[in-house]
Amino acid sequence: MKSTIDMIVENKLVAISRGISSDKMINTVQALKDGGIVCIEVTFSAKSEEISRDTLKAISMIKEYFGDDIAVGAGTVLTVDNVRQAADAGAQYMISPNINEEVIKETKRLGLVSIPGAFTPTEVINAYNMGADIVKLFPAAVLGVEYIKAITGPITHIPLTAVGGIHAGNANDFIRAGCIGVSVGGNLVNKKLIDAGDFEAIKKLAQEYKL
């Protein structure tokens, strides 16, 4: 069985499911999988406990239905409680928009993959020194490809992934600039298409990413 990190690195793309209800999750993940994407992040909501509960339900459903064929993680992980709840639901990695040392350490204590978000070289190095496995550069499109190239010159030992504003047209630019992969949200996991039940269109969107 491949490790979670191996799956993330080899496949280069994590699909971000934000605001997709659990009752549509299996069809959504199946469409992504049919399109060649096997790493899925399901996000918590900092505003809604109801949505966060549904996040945990969705993670459990994905893990139960797809098993080791899908690497499922939790997103917008802001607290230690989020880490523990997501781990109990079956999440294999924790992705955050920020750096929280307690979140990173709890993730690693549970034997899971830590992917916190950073903006500056100092933040990237600090997150890695705290135990992060991969550091998420966010928001990547605001930072730009030239920024990625600039910081990956001196920071060669830390795996970086680009998140925020990524789409099929620019994903490879960020990988060529030095990132090990990218994460894509609404440009791929399109809520309107999913709510309309057009999972074939989701599959076709997934197939546009040739990384």
Results as ranks from 00 to 15, higher is better:
182 V>P: 00
100 N>E: 09
138 F>A: 00
119 F>T: 10
181 G>M: 08
100 N>C: 12
180 I>R: 12
94 M>H: 01
118 A>D: 04
60 S>Q: 08
162 A>L: 09
93 Y>C: 08
125 I>C: 04
97 P>Y: 11
140 A>Y: 06
150 A>G: 12
83 V>T: 14
48 S>I: 07
98 N>K: 14
159 P>V: 11
84 R>D: 01
160 L>I: 15
142 V>Q: 13
68 D>E: 14
104 I>M: 05
74 A>G: 07
158 I>R: 03
105 K>V: 07
50 E>R: 12
76 T>S: 13
73 G>H: 01
160 L>G: 03
80 V>T: 12
47 K>G: 10
188 L>Y: 09
58 A>S: 15
143 L>K: 08
71 A>I: 10
69 D>Q: 10
129 N>F: 03
46 A>P: 06
67 G>Y: 12
124 V>N: 05
176 R>N: 05
83 V>E: 09
119 F>A: 11
105 K>A: 01
168 A>V: 03
45 S>M: 08
139 P>C: 08
95 I>K: 12
93 Y>V: 08
182 V>Q: 02
170 N>L: 06
60 S>H: 00
133 D>S: 08
66 F>D: 04
129 N>L: 09
130 M>T: 13
59 I>P: 05
77 V>N: 09
113 V>C: 11
65 Y>E: 09
101 E>H: 08
82 N>M: 10
151 I>G: 02
103 V>I: 03
180 I>C: 14
54 D>E: 08
137 L>V: 04
52 S>M: 04
111 G>A: 09
54 D>H: 08
123 E>H: 02
167 H>V: 11
149 K>R: 15
59 I>N: 04
48 S>R: 12
121 P>S: 07
67 G>F: 11
189 V>K: 01
175 I>F: 11
187 N>S: 10
109 R>M: 14
44 F>I: 04
184 V>K: 04
81 D>A: 15
107 T>Y: 07
79 T>L: 05
177 A>G: 10
111 G>D: 10
85 Q>C: 15
100 N>M: 04
44 F>W: 01
135 V>I: 14
126 N>D: 15
174 F>V: 09
114 S>M: 06
81 D>H: 13
111 G>R: 14
126 N>F: 12
96 S>Y: 14
142 V>M: 12
127 A>K: 02
112 L>N: 04
162 A>T: 10
175 I>C: 13
69 D>T: 05
150 A>D: 13
135 V>L: 09
75 G>E: 03
52 S>G: 00
72 V>M: 07
89 A>Y: 00
144 G>V: 02
100 N>I: 11
62 I>M: 06
109 R>H: 15
135 V>W: 03
105 K>N: 05
171 A>D: 04
87 A>K: 03
80 V>Q: 07
60 S>E: 13
181 G>Q: 07
79 T>R: 00
140 A>H: 05
72 V>I: 15
175 I>A: 13
176 R>S: 08
96 S>C: 13
143 L>C: 06
51 I>S: 07
78 L>V: 10
128 Y>A: 13
62 I>R: 08
50 E>Y: 08
117 G>V: 13
93 Y>A: 06
160 L>D: 06
98 N>G: 09
146 E>N: 14
90 G>D: 06
103 V>F: 04
49 E>G: 04
127 A>G: 02
